[in-house]
Amino acid sequence: MASQGTKRSYEQMETDGERQNATEIRASVGKMIDGIGRFYIQMCTELKLSDYEGRLIQNSLTIERMVLSAFDERRNKYLEEHPSAGKDPKKTGGPIYKRVDRKWMRELVLYDKEEIRRIWRQANNGDDATAGLTHMMIWHSNLNDTTYQRTRALVRTGMDPRMCSLMQGSTLPRRSGAAGAAVKGVGTMVMELIRMIKRGINDRNFWRGENGRKTRSAYERMCNILKGKFQTAAQRAMMDQVRESRNPGNAEIEDLIFLARSALILRGSVAHKSCLPACVYGPAVASGYDFEKEGYSLVGIDPFKLLQNSQVYSLIRPNENPAHKSQLVWMACNSAAFEDLRVLSFIRGTKVSPRGKLSTRGVQIASNENMDAMESSTLELRSRYWAIRTRSGGNTNQQRASAGQISVQPAFSVQRNLPFDKPTIMAAFTGNTEGRTSDMRAEIIRMMEGAKPEEMSFQGRGVFELSDERAANPIVPSFDMSNEGSYFFGDNAEEYDN
């Protein structure tokens, strides 16, 4: 993207840094990872977990959730003011799984939030270390993106479920800051804005008074975040219109849905970061690795190297396929839920299948599930090659597409044709070009129609051997075009429920 120079890199967003050079960025990201790792080690000690239990991804998720809940100030305040039966607002906890007599047992633990905050700050040299908290939120978000298709949420806001490739980060909490905003897809931002506008339509006082002023500035800020994701002048001009509207209503909703559809071809720039579970960072720190000293990046080879040398386990339900569970977590670790499966298959070195073909449910185990038949197995999170994460949407291309997802959002900077089903997408653009945004709409449609099938995206960008740390010898991959490109292809993934 041309304006790259004016933006802070995501590592800076990730670490609240002012302008830093590459070495400083690597050190501050490393410091953040160190903090998460030290916190995780301490929690495993508190909970008396064995090494194996500490490497269980379900335990990692519970521990991450506990610290996120302990620092969720708004919710904590709300819980104190609106006490609900049987919930102690000062405590947080969740299921911890232990191996007892050759069987997995679930144990519900409860801790004072104050105590968890103390352990977290102690692991982070006394700081609140917001960057580390956001990092864990993005890992949870990436896992949700890989596990669930947001059909219901899309339909509720009037969008087409086939636009799911635009929904990265749709389950990120509001408090995820600049680093969170960077990884949100165009569809996620559109959905947040539509929800806001709908509230304004239904509630006369939404934009009024002292609160209304705050609401208005939040609305304009979200519009600017979305505008910054678009790469064409016409899309940005249309966002200006939406932002400046005196009284946002149905016309703005129409414009936003139009823009979301246009992003299936004229893709937005959305950041991709490899955020790993805390149970990967903990053992690495415990083994003596100093992330701050060595430096770390979320968008280069580092996460690949770390996963190459990590042992992570997962509980497996009786009829689940461990290899499929591994694929789910591998995609989440690489922030690749909406990437082209052919690119992923090449990088991973084994075939990556669409969601609907995987015999696996989510990673988390519900409290009512029976533990008797639970097994555990090693997650295979290694890769054959590594590639640089991208934040450009890439230019655009036609490809055989599917009944489910009709476009992709690249996660890796790797040369390819970008699949999208042009006739299906263009069919949504018939007729409606009147109104105050008509010239911009016409211009956007013209650009979409001009998108050429034979153009290559990320020209000359390749993948790298894991021994090639400096990215000196790019390998331009070859793809098996007979395979499906979309992950949520004609899909039956479970729906995400809060």
Score class of each variant (00 low, 15 high):
E220P: 11
S60Q: 12
M456T: 13
M191R: 15
N144M: 06
G54N: 15
L341V: 13
G177W: 10
N319G: 14
L154C: 06
P474R: 00
P283I: 00
N321M: 11
M1F: 10
G450A: 08
Q122R: 02
A218R: 07
A332M: 06
I425C: 14
Q409W: 15
S413N: 04
E107F: 07
K77I: 14
I425N: 09
G450F: 15
K184T: 03
A178L: 00
S478I: 06
L307D: 06
L68I: 04
G158R: 03
V299G: 12
C44M: 14
A471L: 05
E495C: 10
L79Q: 14
I425A: 05
E339N: 12
I201S: 00
E244Q: 07
M448V: 13
I444A: 07
S377L: 12
W207K: 10
G5P: 03
G394C: 10
A428T: 15
L358W: 08
A237Q: 00
D88W: 08
K91P: 05
F230I: 08
K273D: 09
P89M: 00
S413F: 13
A251M: 07
P423D: 00
R102G: 15
L341E: 08
G17S: 12
A451Q: 01
N250I: 14
E494C: 01
Y97P: 08
D491P: 09
Q122M: 02
A218S: 04
L306E: 12
I33F: 02
R156D: 13
T130P: 06
S245D: 13
R19T: 01
A218N: 09
R175D: 10
V463H: 09
P89E: 06
A178E: 10
D491M: 15
I36L: 01
G295T: 07
R384Y: 05
T232Q: 15
L172Q: 02
S165W: 10
S269E: 10
Y289D: 09
Y281C: 14
P477M: 11
E494S: 05
L328R: 04
N124Q: 14
D372G: 12
M456F: 12
G30K: 09
R121V: 01
E64N: 05
G435S: 04
D16F: 08
G462H: 10
R195M: 06
F258R: 04
F71P: 12
K293A: 03
V285W: 07
